[in-house]
Computed example of a mutant assay.
Amino acid sequence: MASRPPVHHPSSSDFDQTTQMRRIVQRARELLKQSLPDTFLGRKTFEPFPQQGEPAREQDQ
């Protein structure tokens, strides 16, 4: 009769590490689903860019 290879049983620390890594991956996937942040402070997305040849409008002060 052929001998069987030993069976590996994961330790509790392996389980803890796997659980932690799954949480990290889940959080990373959630963050990647979000839109990219706009880091330009004061950006006015409601004003169009001036067309070539048009004078630049003065900003309200």
Rank of each mutant, 00 (worst) to 15 (best):
G42R: 04
P5R: 09
T18I: 06
S3W: 02
I24A: 12
T45S: 12
S12A: 13
Q34Y: 00
Q34I: 00
T45R: 07
M1I: 01
E54A: 13
D16H: 04
M21A: 15
S35T: 07
P48S: 04
R4H: 03
L41S: 04
R27W: 02
A28S: 13
H8Q: 06
A28T: 10
F49R: 11
P50S: 11
E58N: 08
R57S: 05
S35K: 13
F15N: 13
A56F: 07
G53I: 06
R27V: 05
R43K: 10
K44H: 12
P50L: 05
T19I: 09
Q59I: 12
T39M: 10
K33V: 12
D38L: 09
M1D: 00
R23W: 05
Q52V: 09
A2R: 01
A56Y: 05
I24R: 11
F15Y: 09
A2K: 00
Q26V: 02
D60I: 05
F46Y: 15
K44I: 08
S12R: 10
T45P: 10
E47G: 05
Q52K: 10
Q61L: 15
L32Y: 08
Q59Y: 10
L36R: 07
L41E: 14
S3A: 06
E58S: 07
P37Y: 02
T18V: 09
E30F: 02
T18S: 14
Q52F: 09
K33G: 13
P10M: 11
